[in-house]
Every structure is written in C-alpha cells, then in structure tokens.
Amino acid sequence: MGSFFRVAWHVMRKDLTVEVRSKEVLLTTLFFAVSVVLVFSFAIVREGRAPDDVAAGILWVAVSFSGTLAMGRTFERERYNDTLRALLLAPTDRPAIYTGKLLGLLILLALVEMVLVPLVGLLFTAPILAYPGRLAALLALGTLGFAAVGTLFAAMLVRVRSRDTLLPVLLYPVTIPVMIAGVRGTAALFQAVPDEAMAQFWIGLLVFWDAIFVTLALWTFEPVMTE
C-alpha cells in the first residue's frame, strides 16, 4: 500500500513540475473557463442583475468544459513522447499511476476554481461566502467525480485519433449524475433563501457517486490500458 501511494505521489509531483515549467494546461484551462463565464455574463446579466438560479449552472458549465480541456491536454503530454508506455512498463500497480494523474488534475482544477468562484460571485451576484464550507465540499466532490471518470477516459483514448471529439461524447453522459448533484447543491446555496438541508443532501449524493466512480476507475484502469 505504501508503494501505491509513493508511486501516485511521484506521478503527481512529476505532472505538477511539468506544468510549473510549461504552464500550458493551467493557462489554457483558466482562459477557457473565464471566457465561458464572461460570455454568459454578457448574454444574461442586464443592468447589473442576473436572473435567479443561473449562477450555479454557469459555474458548473465552466468547470466541466475547462476540466475536459485539461484532461485531454494532460494525457496529450504523455502521448507526445510515448511516456505513457514508459509509465505502464514500470513494475508498479497501474492504478497508482491513474491515482497520480488524477491528483495532479484535481490540483490544477482546484486552482482554476479558485479564480472561477469569485468571478461567478462577482458577475452574477452569487452569495459565495454565505456557506463557504458547503460550497467548497460541493466543488471538491463534484470535481473529483467528474475528474475520476475523465482521467480514465482520457487515458483510454490517448492513442485514438479522434480523442478530442470522443472524450466529451463519452464523459458527459456518464457524469450526468455528478453534474446534476453539483448544480442542484450549489443552486440550493445560491438561492435567495439558501436551503442548507438540500445542499447537504446533494453533498451526500456526490459522496455516493464519487465512491462508485473512483472504485470503478481504479478497478478498470489496468485492463483498459493493457491492449
């Protein structure tokens, strides 16, 4: 077990070191996410007022679209010099490699969300500081479920020519439960009279879906990566 987490740690640290040098994934993901939010604000916000209940949806649209971009780019790097084969050749538990890639992606997406959330709060007058703990839990759990499936699919598709098209086509239908829970839970916190109990219910549901998705991804990573 120690070896599993040691390998996951090394893979995650390697991914973050590469990202610190290139800043490629973080900057493109952030630029895309901010653009999505801005486009919605130009279209929806009138005289400084946004329609009720749109902020949560826009936040999660930005997270999911930019997250998909980040997943694809992270594995594109491993394809570029065929380093994914070198990772798979190592005498380690292959799910540890998956875990390391997932952790690296989660840290990148967390950084993106740290910019996105205040921006959504500002442009759509969403009460992001009313329940910061619950909002952070919804974002963390929703991002984990989405990224767990996305990391698996991005790894599976890394050698497929039409991977950029196939990734969202496969990912979005499977992660619908996570997206619904994330949007509804966040909306419960952002509404005029926040519904804490409802947000807590969706947090519970996210924990359930995360447990299923992470378990399935860890279980299937080895067979799907062995051709």
Partner: peptide, 27 residues
C-alpha cells in the same frame, strides 16, 4: 527495459529529473 523509437522522456524536465522520476517508479 525498453528504449522506444519515441524516447520516453519528458522534454520539460531536466535529464536528472527524468532519471530520478523513473528510478523512483522502479523503486
């Protein structure tokens, strides 16, 4: 040990960082 036609190295890392990373993967 395998040396592919593509070299299995991360171009953004230094030579030492590449070697240390793979040495760690191999325990």
């Amino acid at each position: 040990g395998m040396l592919g036609h593509d070299l299995f190295l991360y171009p953004e890392l230094t030579a030492r960082e590449n070697l240390i990373f793979f040495a760690q993967l191999y325990g």
